Amino acid sequence: MPTGSQGSTSRWIHVRRPSSNPSTTVAYSGGADSALVLAAAVRALGPECVLAVTPVSESLADGELSRARRLADALGVTHLIPRNDELTRPGYRARPLLLL
């Protein structure tokens, strides 16, 4: 189970998966990079073996969640959408923005 930097799992949804457990979990934002990783995982393993997780917070760009849902549905993967309150964590806002 993924944990935050404080060792807490309270922000994650605990899921009891069916007997055909997904073997791969993709941290899936809905952006191009994670969409490519998700599609590659589905192509390599099949949709029944892939779990997509899109944490939702204020830092998720507008429109990303709806795109993420559409692609996850089209690929036939289980898609979890837990709430992530990273803005409440001390130091999160203080991190400098890296511009490439």
Rank of each mutant, 00 (worst) to 15 (best):
V56P: 00
L38Q: 00
A94V: 05
R43V: 03
A72M: 02
L60F: 08
A68I: 02
L36R: 11
A72K: 01
D62A: 15
R95F: 12
E58C: 06
G31I: 02
D73R: 13
C49V: 07
V53I: 08
L99R: 13
L80R: 01
R16S: 14
V42Y: 03
A61K: 15
N21V: 12
A61Q: 12
A44L: 11
S5V: 11
T88P: 01
A41M: 01
N84V: 04
R43F: 05
A27W: 07
E64D: 13
S19Q: 11
L60N: 09
R67G: 04
N21Q: 12
D73G: 07
A41F: 01
R93F: 08
S59G: 12
V77S: 00
S29L: 03
P2C: 08
P82N: 15
L60E: 07
G63I: 03
N21F: 13
I13A: 14
E58T: 09
I13V: 15
A68M: 01
S29K: 01
V53W: 05
L99H: 08
S34M: 03
L65H: 01
S66H: 09
L38R: 00
T9S: 15
V77Y: 00
Q6D: 15
V42Q: 07
A35N: 04
E58N: 09
P2H: 08
S19R: 10
I81E: 10
S66V: 15
L97P: 00
S19Y: 06
A44D: 12
S66Q: 13
S66G: 06
N84K: 10
E64S: 15
P96M: 10
I13Q: 14
S29G: 06
E86R: 05
V53N: 05
P96L: 10
S23A: 15
W12I: 14
V37T: 10
R69H: 03
H79N: 00
N84L: 14
A32I: 13
A52D: 03
R89K: 10
S23Q: 10
D33H: 01
S29N: 09
V15P: 04
G30I: 00
P47G: 05
R17D: 07
V50A: 05
L87E: 09
L87T: 10
P90D: 13
P47H: 12
A68R: 00
A27F: 08
R89L: 12
N84T: 04
Y28S: 03
S29Y: 04
T78C: 12
T3L: 14
P22C: 07
P55I: 11
R17H: 14
S8C: 11
S29I: 04
T9D: 15
L71H: 01
V50F: 02
A68K: 02
L36V: 11
A27H: 09
R93C: 04
P90G: 15
G91S: 03
R70C: 04
R16V: 15
R70T: 10
P22M: 05
L51Q: 10
L60G: 07
R11F: 13
L36Q: 11
V50Q: 02
L97R: 06
P2K: 08
V37S: 05
A35Y: 01
L36G: 08
S57I: 01
V56T: 13
D73M: 06
A61I: 07
V56H: 07
D62L: 15
L80A: 07
V37Q: 02
A27S: 13
S57K: 02
